[in-house]
């Protein structure tokens, strides 16, 4: 194990007058194509949306400037806080389970000697590219309270029926399962790419130390892919809070708004033509998600 093969945090060079001109110009050239596209199709719509969030606009005529009105409406609306709470609960239901599954699968798939790797990898990816509405059909069938396959299995085991889709306690776990099913493959790919950058000599050295498998994973693998894990967590936090298609097709946000996620609540403003409130809602969500992500990054850093 050599020191050079250990990834370490980026340490950008200090700005220096002594650097050659090519080196000072290079980064601008490298980001130029991206910046061009970003200014045109990223910044402009974002500023438009920011402005929109201070107006009352339903898509026709001129927008009326209302100041912080949309923001105060949302911040004082129980429905807004309910949507955040729903997403927070879903986050807790989804992220730990998904990370453990994805990490275990990725570690196993990282083994070049594993047979049927292609099959497994494809199996985990396929849900991601299967149209949600097609899947929603089977979800409704599987989780129907009286005639669904899942309750039939529970019944055979002597367990009571569960109102998967029709009670506010169970609708969230049902939705969480759908989301885990749909997006775990995505996380597996990301974690796998992180694992593949680990030099195999690291493991060999550890094996010589006689470290057990789980301990090796915890004390070597996880720290080595810490950045990748952090990235995956931030990404999934975003995805969970922005999630709208899953509840839209399976529960329409019900029962009793228990699955009206932050994303669906926002989506509803927009599809109902209340574009100003929708824009304000987006920025509130951005602030929240950013704070959450920073918090988690701090937390993970502290673990080092």
């Amino acid at each position: 194990m050599t020191t050079t093969s250990l990834p370490r945090p980026a340490r950008p060079r200090r700005r220096g007058a002594g650097l050659p001109i090519t080196r000072r110009l290079a980064p601008y050239v490298f980001v130029a194509p991206f910046v061009a596209l970003f200014l045109a199709f990223g910044i402009y719509p974002m500023l438009f949306t920011l402005r929109l969030s201070f107006t009352n606009w339903h898509g026709a005529g001129s927008a009326e400037w209302v100041g912080w009105d949309n923001y105060t409406y949302l911040l004082t609306s129980p429905a807004f806080w309910n949507s955040l709470a729903n997403s927070a609960v879903l986050w807790l239901l989804i992220i730990p389970v998904q990370l453990v599954i994805a990490l275990a699968a990725a570690i196993l798939l990282d083994n070049a000697k594993l047979r049927m790797r292609g099959f497994y990898r494809t199996a985990f990816i396929v849900p991601f590219v299967t149209p949600l509405v097609a899947v929603a059909q089977i979800w409704v069938v599987l989780f129907d309270q009286n005639y669904g396959a899942v309750n039939a299995v529970l019944g055979a085991l002597g367990l009571p029926d569960i109102a998967w889709l029709t009670s506010s306690e169970w609708a969230k776990p049902t939705l969480a399962l759908l989301f885990i099913w749909k997006t775990t493959g995505f996380i597996v790919v990301i974690l796998l790419s992180g694992l593949q950058s680990i030099d195999s000599t690291v493991y060999e050295a550890a094996e010589l130390d006689g470290a057990g498998r789980l301990r090796r994973i915890w004390s070597i693998t996880v720290p080595l892919i810490r950045r990748t894990l952090m990235f995956a967590i931030v990404l999934q936090t975003l995805a969970v809070f922005q999630m709208f298609a899953e509840p839209f097709v399976v529960t329409q946000g019900g029962p009793y708004s228990s699955t009206t996620t932050a994303g669906l609540y926002l989506y509803n403003h927009i599809t109902r033509g209340d574009l100003g409130t929708g824009a304000a809602n987006s920025f509130l969500l951005v602030i929240l998600v950013m704070a959450l992500s920073l918090g988690m990054v701090r937390l993970l850093r502290a673990k080092d």
Partner: peptide
Amino acid sequence: LTLMLPTIV
């Protein structure tokens, strides 16, 4: 920031 902004808006 753009990563965090929901596409729909």
